[in-house]
């Protein structure tokens, strides 16, 4: 009966479609995924350290995607990572002395391979090796000193007030913790601009337990982690005199403009993202 056949065919199609979807999802969207691409040519690059670079990560020139990472393998003889880049055939005129570098998109973004053109007249050929590479920057090492523990001190034991002046408090806000050696000892009571001295005057409420802070201690505005809130760190000095209620801390270190400092590590296609504050301001949108 034709009626029967149409059911059978339709049901068969349904089953095939379902299994095709399942197979596609299982192989193409998971770690099982193989690299697959259109017409491209492959280039080798050896990196001393690939950081978090993953297969299928983009390869970019001047911020424009030109291909993707095909394979990553360790070359045990040289203690280096062998990275195979698949580059679109349209971009076949890349000088053979170009430099491959591993970059990070944004602060939390994924890593990718950036190629900067060299001066050679010869183009990279299929299977050629990019001799000049720069490994992934270990951002966390360089930024480690800015990492701090979170948490706000409680003021149950009563507190006394210290003042500190900063030329720049960054995104420091009222209520932010004050830490010594990474341990919270108080909180920021007030932040206001001094109209005469043209700087920021910050009042810190310090727990009474910590009443033996040397009067030559320094105050600095730090950031907890890469995207954490800012806090005031107190670095004890060596003076035998202690700070008392209402005293001002003379030695201060203003908020580091993290983005200035690390901007060179954050090469990014989107110029707006370079201006983002790592602390609390939202990332740039497109």
């Amino acid at each position: 009966m034709s009626q029967r056949n149409s059911y059978a065919v339709g049901t068969g199609l349904f089953i095939v479609l379902g299994f095709a979807a399942l197979a596609y999802l299982a192989t193409q969207t998971t770690s099982v995924a193989n690299t697959h691409q259109g017409a491209s040519y492959t280039v080798q690059a050896h990196f001393a350290n690939i950081g978090q670079l993953k297969e299928r990560a983009p390869v970019k020139i001047a911020g424009v995607r030109v291909g993707q990472v095909r394979t990553i393998a360790l070359d045990p003889k040289r203690e280096a990572a062998d990275v195979t880049l698949a580059i679109d055939e349209r971009y076949s005129h890349i000088p053979d002395d170009s430099v491959a570098t591993i970059f990070t998109s944004g602060l939390l973004g994924d890593q990718y391979v950036g190629i900067e053109y060299g001066n050679s007249k010869k183009d990279l050929a299929e299977g050629a090796t990019l001799a000049r590479t720069k490994p992934a920057q270990q951002l966390e090492e360089m930024l480690g000193k800015f990492f701090g523990a979170g948490g706000v001190a409680d003021n149950l034991g009563g507190s006394y007030v210290l003042k500190a002046r900063f030329s720049n408090v960054g995104a420091l806000s009222v209520g932010a913790p004050v830490k010594m050696a990474g341990v919270p000892i108080g909180s920021v009571m007030a932040v206001h601009a001094d109209p005469v001295k043209l700087d920021a005057e910050v009042e810190l409420a310090i727990d009474r337990k910590y009443d033996q802070i040397p009067d030559d201690s320094a105050a600095a505005v730090f950031t907890s982690g890469l995207i954490g809130t800012q806090y005031v760190a107190v670095q004890p000095g060596g003076s035998p005199e202690f700070l008392k209620n209402g005293d001002e801390m003379v030695l201060t270190q203003s908020a580091m403009q993290l983005e200035d400092l690390i901007g060179k590590f954050l090469v990014n296609g989107s110029p707006t993202e370079k201006k983002e504050a790592p602390a609390e301001s939202p990332a740039g949108k497109h």
Partner: peptide, 14 residues
């Protein structure tokens, strides 16, 4: 596009 897929394929487990 590549980031979208590469992040997915790197994290999603069969």
């Amino acid at each position: 596009n590549g980031t979208f897929w590469s992040n997915m394929t790197a994290t999603v487990d069969v």
